[in-house]
Design a protein around this nucleic acid. Structure first.
Length: 427
RNA sequence: GCGAGCGUAGCCAAGUGGUUAAGGCAGUGGUUUGUGGUACCACCAUCCGGGGGUUCGAGUCCCCUCGUUCGCCCCA
C-alpha cells in the first residue's frame, strides 16, 4: 500500500471504541480519588539511564525492548517502557517526600516497548498504575491490591485470578538464589535452553519457565517461601490476612517472580483465561529499593500497573460498545433559518443537551434521514416559516408527534425537556 | 529475535490459472427539493497489502517485502 499507515505495533483508537477507554479511566479515577490517590503526569521520555538503573540492565525490557534515541543535543533518551521509574524519578526530583507522609499517586498513559506485536501486546500500549511511596506498612500492599481488584470488579470483569507471592528482601533472595542454583545445576543439561542461560544470569526467572520438563524439575526445587526471614515471613502473612479480611481471594504461587529488578517482598499478578498468551491484566508489588537506587532517600514503596488494551479486550467480550447519544438533531433550510438553528444549538448545548446540527445544507428529506440515523430523541425543524415567526417545530422521533413552539419558550422549558428525553431514552 | 497461519471495497465475504472481480451490511443519489424510519431503483474495487518473477494469460503459482494473527521469548 502506498498510503501511510499506523506504524507497526501501534493502533488508532477510533470513536466507536473510545467509550471503553473513557469508561475505564472514569471508573479508575473515581475509585482512586476516593482512596485519596492523586494523579501524576510525568514525561513520555526520560534519560536512558533512568530505566537502565531503575528497571535493571539485565532485564529483557531494558536490554532489548527500549525505544532509545539520541536527541539533537546528543543526549540518550528513551521512550518510557513502564511508569514506575518515571514516577520515582519525579518523586526524588521534586523532593515529594519533603511534603511529609505517604505519597499516593496514580497515572495513566502510553508506554513503549519494542516487541513483536501480538493480541494484547503492542509497541505503544497504555498502562494505568498506582504508586504508594513512603510507606512500609503492609496495609499499603493490601490497599493497593484491593484498589486494583475494586477497579476490575466495578468494570464488571469476572473470572480473574489473583496470584500472590513474596520474594523477600535482597538477603532472603540471595540465599534462595544460591539454593536454587545448587539444586538446578545437576539438572542443567535437562533444562530448556533459555533456562540454562538464565541459570547464571537470572536464576529466579527459571521459575516461570513454561517448558514442561523444566517445570517437572522445578517440582522438587526449594521454594522461596522457605527462605524468607522471620520479618519477611510476617509481612507476607499479614498481607494475606488483610486480603482475606477484605474478602479478596488469592492463591499463593511461590513460582511467581517478576521481570523487573526493583521488586521486593510482595509481588502479585492478576490474570485472565480469556486473553490467550498475554494473560496478565495487572501486576505489581513492593519495591523498597528503587528510590534509593535512583539516588533518593531509602523509601519503601508499592505499586502496580494495568494494561489497558488487555483490559478493554476483556470488556469488549462482555459488553457491547456504547453508542454516543444525541438529544436534539436540528434540521434547517434557508439562510435565516440556518443561522437561527446555530444559535438555538448553542443555547441548547449550554443547557446541557447533546445537540447535533445538520450542516449538509441538503433537502429536508435528507436531513431527516440523517436525524433518524443519529438516533436522536427529538428533532428540531427550522424553515422559512419558523424563521419568520421565531418558532421551531419540535418532533419526537420515536412517536412522530410534532408541535410548533416559540424558540424562547423552548429554551424556557429545558427542565421539562430533560425529563422527557430521559424517559424516552430509557425505553 | 525465532516458528506457523493469514492479507480481496469502510466492514463481512465469494473466488481453487482463462473474457468486463459474486453477494451482504454500511455509504451516496433518486422515486419524495417542508418531514425520517419501510419499499423499490441506481451508483459505490481500472483492481485483489506492496514489489518482482513464472506463464500466451495470475487475485489464484513462486520469491522478496510490509502488515496482522497465533505460539515461543518477554510482559501490562
Amino acid at each position: 500500500m502506498s498510503s501511510i499507515q499506523a506504524s507497526r505495533g501501534t493502533r488508532d483508537i477510533l470513536p466507536d471504541e473510545v467509550g471503553y477507554w473513557q469508561r475505564v479511566e472514569a471508573i479508575a479515577r473515581d475509585i482512586l480519588t476516593r482512596a485519596a490517590y492523586r494523579e501524576i503526569r510525568t514525561p513520555i521520555f526520560e534519560q536512558t539511564t533512568l530505566f537502565e538503573r531503575g528497571v535493571g540492565e539485565a532485564t529483557d525490557v531494558v536490554s532489548k525492548e527500549m525505544y532509545t534515541f539520541q536527541d539533537r543535543g546528543d543526549r540518550s533518551l528513551t521512550l518510557r517502557p513502564e511508569g514506575t521509574a518515571g514516577v520515582a524519578r519525579s518523586y526524588i526530583d521534586h523532593n515529594l517526600s519533603a511534603q511529609g507522609g505517604v505519597q499516593r499517586l496514580w497515572y495513566v498513559g502510553a508506554m513503549f516497548r519494542y516487541e513483536r506485536p501480538q493480541a494484547g501486546r503492542q509497541r505503544q500500549f497504555h498502562q494505568l498504575g498506582v504508586e504508594v511511596l513512603g510507606s512500609a506498612d503492609f496495609r499499603a500492599d493490601a490497599e493497593a491490591i484491593a484498589l486494583a481488584t475494586e477497579i476490575l470488579q466495578t468494570l464488571g470483569l469476572k473470572d480473574l485470578r489473583l496470584d500472590l507471592n513474596s520474594i523477600g528482601d535482597s538477603s532472603d533472595r540471595q540465599k534462595y538464589r544460591e539454593a536454587l542454583v545448587a539444586y538446578l545445576t545437576p539438572f542443567k543439561e535437562e533444562l530448556d535452553a533459555d533456562s540454562q542461560d538464565r541459570l547464571t544470569r537470572n536464576p529466579l526467572r527459571i521459575l516461570d519457565s513454561k517448558d514442561p520438563r523444566t517445570q517437572t524439575i522445578l517440582d522438587q526445587a526449594p521454594g522461596i517461601l522457605d527462605y524468607l526471614s522471620p520479618d519477611s515471613q510476617r509481612r507476607f502473612d499479614r498481607v494475606q490476612q488483610l486480603l482475606s479480611d477484605l474478602g479478596i481471594a488469592c492463591n499463593v504461587n511461590s513460582r511467581l517472580v517478576r521481570g523487573l529488578d526493583y521488586y521486593t517482598h510482595t509481588v502479585f499478578e492478576i490474570q485472565s483465561d480469556d486473553l490467550g498468551a498475554q494473560a496478565t491484566v495487572c501486576a505489581g508489588g513492593r519495591y523498597d529499593g528503587l528510590v534509593a537506587e535512583l539516588g533518593g532517600a531509602e523509601t519503601p514503596a508499592v505499586g502496580w500497573a494495568m494494561g489497558l488494551e488487555r483490559l478493554i479486550l476483556l470488556l469488549q467480550q462482555i459488553q457491547p460498545a456504547t453508542p454516543s447519544p444525541v438529544d436534539f438533531y436540528i434540521v434547517s433550510r434557508g439562510e435565516k433559518a440556518e443561522s437561527q438553528a446555530l444559535t438555538l444549538a448553542q443555547s441548547l448545548r449550554r443547557s446541557g443537551f447533546i445537540t447535533e446540527l445538520d450542516l449538509s445544507g441538503s433537502a429536508f428529506g435528507k436531513q431527516f434521514k440523517r436525524a433518524d440515523r443519529s438516533d436522536a430523541v427529538a428533532c428540531l425543524i427550522l424553515g422559512d416559516t419558523e424563521a419568520e415567526t421565531k418558532t421551531v417545530q419540535l418532533k419526537w422521533l420515536r412517536s412522530g408527534e410534532q408541535t410548533a413552539i416559540e424558540q424562547t419558550a423552548l429554551l424556557e422549558m429545558v427542565d421539562k425537556l430533560r425529563q422527557q428525553i430521559f424517559r424516552l431514552r430509557d425505553d
